[in-house]
């Protein structure tokens, strides 16, 4: 089982990309779980065909407890198990803790043992890297981190913060950097900026996702491009990145379902 946290600044396209990668990995025949760790609770919409997954925190708020995974899971494209942590009403409460609580509940309900997934993707808001939002890269959770960023200044700033958090934790044998994905915004010198970041961050570039109107077209249908049309250029590009992820980050790796990754 490989557990991968995908971090990025809010609005960078991180959920869209994570869902596309999850769909791509699932389409290779792997069992996949995706856990949205953003208070907006919309990480998995493109996998579930728009069906809203009840956020764990919302469920707990209404019912006081949860006895079964069935009550909080939504099955998405290619049987991807989708969860959403959810969070507070804006302006109040404690979002970081919402993630911790969700993880503890999934542990209590023995999610990993029950679903025995090959890949788990955590889609995490990376604007704030306090204790709660850093939870996915702690011991027992994600072992690998992908940062999604554009060449925009604020996106790179967030990326840099996330990189620092990973580095701090790395001393404790926690999650390691798998690499960076550039989600292009067509900023001037974008590739150069990213290459510079990748170098400073001592990691590698997993791939570049170009701007493509098809992403939006299928998003409007609550689908990933992988589900919508795997023959599109953009879909192939994402499949390629997914292949690298499956291969453990080594450039050009190809996916072979069923083999121990």
């Amino acid at each position: 089982m490989r557990k991968i946290a995908v971090y990025g600044k809010g609005g960078i396209g991180k959920s869209t990309l994570t869902s596309s990668l999850a769909a791509a990995v699932a389409s290779m025949g792997y069992k996949v779980v995706q856990i949205g760790c953003d208070p907006k609770a919309d990480s998995t919409l493109n996998l579930t065909g728009g069906k809203e997954t009840v956020p764990v925190i919302e469920y707990l708020r209404q019912h006081g407890g949860c006895d079964s995974l069935d009550e909080i899971v939504t099955w998405g494209y290619k049987n991807i198990a989708c969860f959403e942590a959810g969070g507070p009403t804006p302006g109040t409460g404690c979002a970081g803790r919402g993630i911790v609580t969700t993880f503890e509940l999934l542990d209590d309900l023995e999610m990993f043992e029950t679903y025995d997934p090959d890949f788990v993707f955590y889609d995490v808001l990376g604007d704030v890297v306090c204790g709660g939002f850093a939870m996915p890269i702690r011991k027992g959770y994600a072992e690998e981190v992908i940062i999604v960023t554009s060449g925009e200044k604020m996106a790179l700033f967030a990326a840099s913060n996330i990189r620092m958090a990973v580095e701090n934790y790395q001393q404790r044998n926690y999650a390691k950097m798998l690499g960076v994905i550039l989600n292009k915004r067509n900023v001037e010198n974008e590739e150069e900026l990213i290459n510079d970041f990748v170098q400073r961050a001592d990691t590698e570039l997993l791939g570049v996702v170009p701007r493509d109107k098809n992403i939006q077209i299928y998003e409007d249908r609550c689908q990933t491009v992988i589900e919508g049309d795997p023959d599109l250029e953009i879909s192939k590009k994402i499949m390629e990145i997914a292949g690298r992820i499956v291969a453990g980050g080594k450039a050009g790796g190809t996916a072979v379902p069923g083999e121990d990754t």
């Binding site: 803790r97 011991k139 934790y169």
Partner: peptide, 14 residues
């Protein structure tokens, strides 16, 4: 520390 999500597990290991 539950709310802060403080990493005591890491501290303990160290």
């Amino acid at each position: 520390d539950d709310l802060l999500g403080s990493d005591f597990e890491g501290l303990i290991e160290k």
